[in-house]
Amino acid sequence: MVTIIFKHPDGEETRVDSPVGETVMRVAVEAGIPGIVGDCGGNLSCATCHCYVDPAWGSSLPNMSADEETMLESALDVTLESRLSCQIVVTAELEGIRLMIPESSL
């Protein structure tokens, strides 16, 4: 299991254990993390799983695909740290990764 840390807009953190191979979106949805919705089930069609990757971990992740970049344009408050969490596959290297959840009404 790999520990993923979700940091909420109020600063609180939730630690969730995930099997390798799962996507961060599914881990968050199953754990009931508010703000990560994943409406389209991980098909790059909704931008409701937007999160910010702690810069310390950014280089551990594969680059964004063109389709992810396009869909990400439809998220709110996008920064250089933004990713769609359905595109982040959990690997052993991500142990302890911290992801910030955007302030949102979702």
Binding site: N43, S45, C46, D67, T70, M71, S74, A75, L76, S104
Partner: peptide
């Protein structure tokens, strides 16, 4: 399916809905 879906996805996105 994906290419066609991508045409309408932005219309219902968080940014569009806000």
């Amino acid at each position: 399916h994906f290419g066609y879906r991508a045409l309408i996805s932005p219309a219902f996105s968080p940014k569009a809905l806000a």
